[in-house]
Amino acid sequence: MNLRSAFLLPARVWSAVFLATPLAIVCAYSLLTRGDYGGVERPWTPENYTRLLDPLYLGILWRSLWMAGLATAVCAVAGFPLALFIARAGRRRNLLLQLVLLPFWTSFLVRTYAWLFILRDTGLVNTALLRLGVIRSPLPLLYNEGAVLLGLVYNFLPFFVLPLYATLERLDPALPEAAADLGATPLRTLRRVILPLAAPGIAAGCVLVFIPCLGAYLTPDLLGGGKTVMLGNLIQNQFTTARDWPFGSAASLVLMLVSAAPLWFLLRREAR
């Protein structure tokens, strides 16, 4: 065995045993039957997948797609002007970029908890409004889809800004100037020159936001309070409380396939 194979061995073994095998087990479980005591049993059956077509579960899938899509759209609309501003900020670029990344580098749980602290009945917003006499009883700011959306946007906005900034930074400033010299209004320059050139960055940013939002577990759990159930929460529930592993496995595979679709699209686009 040469040095290279020896060096590859630990990573190969670890990823075969603790990454590939678990996924293979989930694939197999998704086609088995739930046992009486929560385990898995034969016979083999496609029933776990057909159960996902039940309106209840289709609704969860649809909500996950909707929430992830909405969060991606908000990140795109909110993140584009920010990325554009940073790309044109000259010498302060790096500082501004660091400022975008700084909150991203703190614990995901802490960032989500921060919104819990601000939004809950005894939280900052409600306490302030009650004290000021604007409202008489606390507003239901938490445990709804809006709170989950806010949490997703807050947690993943840097994922959109970063790749878009990388694209905009490389954009030749002479091009928008030329468009302006030729009489294009700023809006037209944006639409006809900047946006088409920034498209790869926008696409990458959208995929980077959409995929983790689709599989989000913590944000809907903490800020949705179990009311806004997304695919991640369904899977967690099937593997813990409900102990229906075959069904949870089928939902896991569906989540992986739906997540892979936009990535596959992006990679194909880049290959062209």
Partner: peptide
């Protein structure tokens, strides 16, 4: 791979 899938697998 979504974290939740890594976890349950």
């Amino acid at each position: 791979t979504p974290e939740i899938v890594t976890g349950v697998s």
